[in-house]
């Protein structure tokens, strides 16, 4: 499913809509280049789950955990700094999800086969829809520029929710 977010506000709204459908045990992989909006997505997602603390990228701490009530914890992971699949395995992200968690994994697409059922959210800059600025590097990424967001489910866990995902995000469909 391909979506278009015209601004940061839209990215957060899409994240918020998905957060409303997410449940304990979910692993959501966030893919996309530097500055594509993975952390912005995580912020919108967390806010919708009731996280009041500021959500920052866990590049150096690997995983940040935010309690969202008595039975739910949002785990925000970033595996950019890891070099081997064994290191990723040791984070035991599927276990964090299983034990009352929802896990967002930045850069998780490089090892997604190890996650089993999951949803991939691929963010990229909308080159066509956004006329301004050059296309010559990440540094030119304006945070508020338009994004393309592609959703792809692996496994059965999200297929039962796909109608509701589509309904909730109808306004952003490309």
């Amino acid at each position: 499913m391909l979506l278009r977010a015209a601004s940061l506000v839209d990215t957060c709204a899409i994240a918020s809509s998905l957060a409303g459908l997410a449940r304990v045990g979910d692993i959501i992989v966030l893919a996309g280049e530097m500055g594509a909006g993975k952390t912005a997505f995580a912020q919108g997602f967390g806010k919708a789950l009731g996280v009041t603390e500021p959500i920052t990228s866990p590049t150096f701490t690997l995983v940040h955990s935010y309690p969202c009530g008595p039975k739910l914890t949002l785990h925000h992971a970033d595996i950019y700094r890891l070099d081997s699949t064994g290191d990723v395995d040791q984070l035991a992200l599927p276990e964090l999800a299983e034990f009352g968690g929802i896990v967002l994994v930045e850069w998780g697409d490089v090892v997604a086969t190890g996650f089993g059922d999951h949803l991939e959210v691929r963010l990229s800059r909308d080159e066509v829809g956004d006329g301004a600025g050059g296309a010559d590097g990440d540094d030119d990424f304006g945070l508020d520029e338009a994004r393309l967001i592609e959703l792809q489910a692996t496994g059965r866990s999200w297929s039962g929710r796909w109608d509701r995902v589509a309904y909730g995000l109808e306004g952003y469909r490309c």
Binding site: E33, I79, L82, S84, D89, Q90, V110
Partner: peptide
């Protein structure tokens, strides 16, 4: 004893950034 799949390098070379 983790007894898991063999460790492999993540192919970060595919990532331009």
């Amino acid at each position: 004893i983790y007894l898991r799949a063999p460790d492999a390098q993540i192919n970060w070379a595919t990532r331009e950034s």
